[in-house]
Design a protein around this nucleic acid. Structure first.
Lengths: 166, 166
DNA sequence: GTGATTATTTGATCTAAGTCAAAAGTTTTG
DNA sequence: CAAAACTTTTGACTTAGATCAAATAATCAC
């Protein structure tokens, strides 16, 4: 197992995955922050952020072995263990109980996504920001304002004003 | 297998799952429309709609065997096959290849959810409506206006005006 | 360390969509 | 089939947040 995980380091700003590549590796972060984003009208829209003890990849691309619209980059210099999709398949083949574990954790991730959809629809800009800070309370202060704004779907200016007021 | 699937009928308006129950069954719809919703300030907010040849349940509740905030009801009189979670587990145990299939289809569902999050953030009310009609093109005309409005996160009045203008 | 980028703040408008209220249309049900 | 109960439309008004523009502030690279 050990040799299937490779320790890699990405420097701040480095591109981890380009949107025209298939996401063949999952990264388990030891230190730092990685972020998934996509481009809309030439601007970067942040999709989510991952930090210590979390796995990151481009889900659809990784699971279906085809390209998707998502990029991954490093917001801070980051150390992570990388696991190749083939090795993951090997693990699933040899440890069938992993499938069950993976299926269960999907329930959790689903819950998060659905909650996020709910919060996107009915919250004011300020509530969205508060919700963001709560769901990323460990790292929200390490993420640049502009990236947070695009994550929650408001402009930088509005977010700057929200922060100023309290 | 056959005896694990039960054909059930729900009349229009009937509650299929109450939020204080654990979702122990998945329904595969043969005819009609079922809908997942939750309550916010006493109002029903539609989460998604399912029709012919689709499976519906309360995902987090179903996968983790605990209650969640979602209700399911019938928008039209609906015929569906119900499959109990225990029987599904039985199938997973006896047909390991199902796990793989399920894991792969998760990729697709993930893609849909992520796309929806993206569309919620940057679309105008009109674009959200168009996006809704596209993703539910088979059934969008059978869903009441108010439910569509809450699904896409705008008011009924605004949706009514959008429809009027074109 | 200093000039050059890049990120954030502040100010002045503008507009899409929300709110409240009431009228018109549809469905349901006894 | 008529009254009641919903659903949808229309109107007048308000407001949160977008846009455009320019001034600071912070960070990076040589």
């Amino acid at each position: 197992m050990k040799d299937r995980l490779q320790l890699v380091t990405f420097t701040k700003g480095e591109l981890v995955l380009d949107a025209n590549q298939v996401s063949t590796k999952s990264y388990f972060i030891r230190k730092g922050i990685l972020r998934t984003y996509f481009l809309k009208d030439g601007k970067e829209i942040s999709e989510y952020f991952c930090s210590k003890d979390e796995w990151i990849n481009s889900p659809k691309s990784f699971m279906q072995r085809k390209t998707d619209i998502y990029y991954i980059d490093a917001i801070e210099t980051t150390e992570a263990f990388s696991l190749h999709v083939n090795d993951l398949v090997y693990l699933f083949d040899h440890f069938p109980e992993m499938e069950r574990y993976s299926r269960l954790s999907m329930g959790t991730i689903f819950g998060h996504l659905m909650e996020r959809i709910a919060s996107m629809r009915f919250a004011s800009a300020k509530e969205k920001y508060i919700h963001f800070c709560e769901s990323y309370h460990e790292i929200y202060h390490r993420i640049p304002l502009g990236m947070i704004a695009s994550y929650i779907g408001i402009t930088q200016e509005t977010l700057s004003r929200i922060r100023a007021e309290k």
